[in-house]
Design a protein around this nucleic acid. Structure first.
Lengths: 153, 153
DNA sequence: TAGATATTATTAGCGACCTAATAATATCTA
DNA sequence: TAGATATTATTAGGTCGCTAATAATATCTA
């Protein structure tokens, strides 16, 4: 058998990142289900809480996601009345996305779930280790996106 | 405005994990596309390279994924002739999954891409830092799955 | 042994990502 | 100003995760 081209994949950072990430996504999905949200929607809301009235393309850029992804998520958020689309005076192509009252109100519940998840998920690590992990992931993030976070104007 | 329930999500380990993870998934998808594979298929192959002839349910368990997920991935792998399904004598419910010649041969290309990706993706970190990251992710993985890897018999 | 319960694979359908393609509008340039 | 090029939103369709439901087979138990 032509074995032993065998890498020990399980010991590479990539492998572990992939595994931890999907487990984490499931956990996030479960936590956010408690407040009737899906995992992806939460990230969109975060951007709007920071700066309401963004265009879809802006949200996409800030989250490092593609416009069609955002478009679909927004449809979901509009359906559950957390967000509205309003057309822009001066550019008939684009629309601005605004939080509804309900959209603003979701902030508290999401924050609570987020912290709970963070605590739960990172419970295997000491405080110091969590900080180290945060630092390392932060640097990978910057290395890969080329920016820590989009310059708020 | 009811602002300032505001968590700085971007500084939590969870947030960074999510972000880094999707960036990584894209990178993996792109790298594996070079050898005509999708990201998820690679993980299934890894298990078969370690132990050929597993049942679908075994693969699911080892990868910490659900049976329908595996089922669909296998359909893809069968379509491109990397794998076959053979029924089991003694249990008409299950099938065993076997690598084809082409499936075994893919091992080399995947390993090459994997290492390239690992190098590229982790290039922002020193060797020591990468080891620390691996250790921390490994511990999160164990904490969440309850086992480092399934006991090979 | 008959009937209830387990297990395995599979299908259907959903969300979170993606790329490619399209339509509408803006903008730039010859 | 006309025509080429950019940009924005959107649709279609794909993979990778998931849950719920189903059918077939095994196994357990009364």
């Amino acid at each position: 058998m032509n074995e032993n081209e065998g890498i020990e994949y399980e010991k590479t950072a990539s492998y572990l990142l992939a595994k931890v990430a999907t487990a984490y996504r499931n956990a996030l999905e479960n936590h956010m289900a408690r407040v009737h949200l899906h995992s992806g929607q939460v990230f969109v809301l975060m951007e709007l809480w920071k700066k309401d009235g963004l265009r879809q393309v802006d949200i996409a850029e800030r989250l490092n996601l593609r416009p069609p992804t955002i478009n679909k998520m927004l449809t979901g958020l509009i359906d559950i009345n957390l967000v509205t689309r309003r057309s822009i005076a001066g550019d008939k192509r684009s629309t601005r996305i605004f939080l509804t009252r309900k959209g603003w109100d979701a902030q508290r519940d999401v924050a609570a779930q987020w912290l709970e998840l963070e605590t739960e998920y990172m419970s295997g690590l000491s405080e110091t280790e969590r900080l180290v992990l945060t630092d390392l992931l932060g640097r990978l993030h910057i290395a890969y996106t080329g920016r820590p976070n989009p310059d708020d104007d």
